[in-house]
Nucleic acid binder design. Structure first.
Lengths: 232, 232
DNA sequence: CCGGTTCTGTGCGCTCGGTCACAAGCGTGC
DNA sequence: GCACGCTTGTGACCGAGCGCACAGAACCGG
């Protein structure tokens, strides 16, 4: 327990709040693994049940429709974790995870993880918070499908903007998100995104520069969505 | 602690696994409330954060789109609980809950609930399992919106069938679910459901009797959905 | 700088499915 | 039974948005 040098597991969000002694004890139940860029970490429908904690690198979670179309994804980086769902309910994995860059992860078996939850209520609560967030995000998604395509795209843009604010009413997305990307997340097609962007650009709400997308007026974008939504 | 007479809180699913002494201790943090049929228990966007445990009666959870259209719902009965999300993350309520029948519930403040989670890891794990189930159900929903209307309706039918199986390949839904009901859950219109039912009835897959709906061949229904899905 | 590849912008036809309209069932209460 | 309301079945219309096609722009690697 060296005070100046924090334990490596201290970077894991779920373990925030544990002291070094507790982390050392937890570490006994983990194994470290390295993945090369492009390698698959877990595969959809696998029935492995380990939980993973990312020490370094960047991974990508994807879900494919049965037709093979990519439906949604998010990126994971150091400090984040994944695989809790299968550990908790024993069901097969709900998504693919592949390494985007070389990455180091630490993993724990389902039963060791569940035991850790019992021993350390703070971890359990951290997982609860994580799942709660997920539930709310998913619900939002479900609601959104009641909306028309343009509204959904606007919402997705607003979500992207939220994480890249630049002042209070503007955001810069760099690198520019690919249209096909956005489209697939809200379950529509590239062309729809392209057309909407043109419209928004004409109104000065967004601006496309080299390799970046600037949302000049977040308020106006939200208003645009609201107005589309209400009248039809 | 009378051995023959179980504690009233023992009926609550989340408290499965606690002994009578622990239940008595928990009870000190609860208040009991009675609701009359039709009364609102929690309202969407409220910022109350209590957790509710149903002792008796039937409640209904609904979510409305901003346009006021009912999007989805589920029913809750004795033993189930609700309100955990707001207690865990402190955000406003994610849905409306109204009493369908007269009902008795027990409630706990958010902070008492969180404290209980810390003291009783089994409760925390029960909540984790519940949320995990929810996440999986919601993900399934999100995926489904990539499908065409008919496929979505078939899937909804299959879900209904799952809870009302009659042998291995048939199910009886009684009372018959209303078409408008099913339609709103998969985000479409009464007419679409009506038309699909006619088609399925012509193929002998389902059968409409007085006040009930019989799914004669669940396999065939699943196959029908799969085939629609793959060719277009 | 050139040739290829991937991404973007836009026009157009066609299909799915949302909407309207109306008739027929069914249940309930009087 | 009859009248009323709620639910269901079905045809016809029509608009949103998907899919296709193709041209231009941006982004490589060499």
């Amino acid at each position: 327990m060296e005070p100046g040098r924090p334990h490596p597991l201290a970077t894991v969000d779920l373990f925030r709040g544990l002291d070094t002694a507790q982390l050392q004890e937890l570490e006994r139940y983990t194994r470290t693994r390295a993945f090369k860029a492009g390698q698959t970490v877990v595969e959809y429908q696998d029935d492995s049940h380990d939980v993973f904690f990312i020490l370094s690198g960047k991974l990508k979670v994807t879900i494919f429709s049965e037709a093979g179309r990519e439906i949604a994804f998010r990126e994971l980086t150091a400090g984040q974790s994944f695989g809790e769902l299968s550990a908790i309910d024993g069901q097969p994995r709900s998504a693919n995870v592949i390494a985007l860059t070389d990455a180091t992860v630490v993993l724990m078996t389902a039963s060791d993880f569940m035991a850790a939850l019992k021993r350390h209520p703070d971890i359990a609560i951290a997982v609860l918070k994580k799942l709660t967030l997920l539930v709310r995000a998913l619900s939002e998604r479900v609601h959104e499908f009641a909306e028309k395509v343009e509204v959904r795209i606007c919402h997705e843009l607003l979500r992207l903007a939220r994480d890249a604010m630049l002042g209070t009413n503007a955001a810069r997305l760099r690198p520019a998100p690919k249209h096909a990307e956005i489209a697939s997340r809200v379950n529509t097609h590239r062309e729809a995104v392209s057309r909407l962007f043109s419209k928004l650009a004409r109104q000065g709400i967004v601006q496309r520069g080299q390799g970046e997308l600037v949302i000049r007026d977040v308020q106006a974008l939200a208003a645009y969505a609201r107005q589309l939504h209400s009248h039809g």
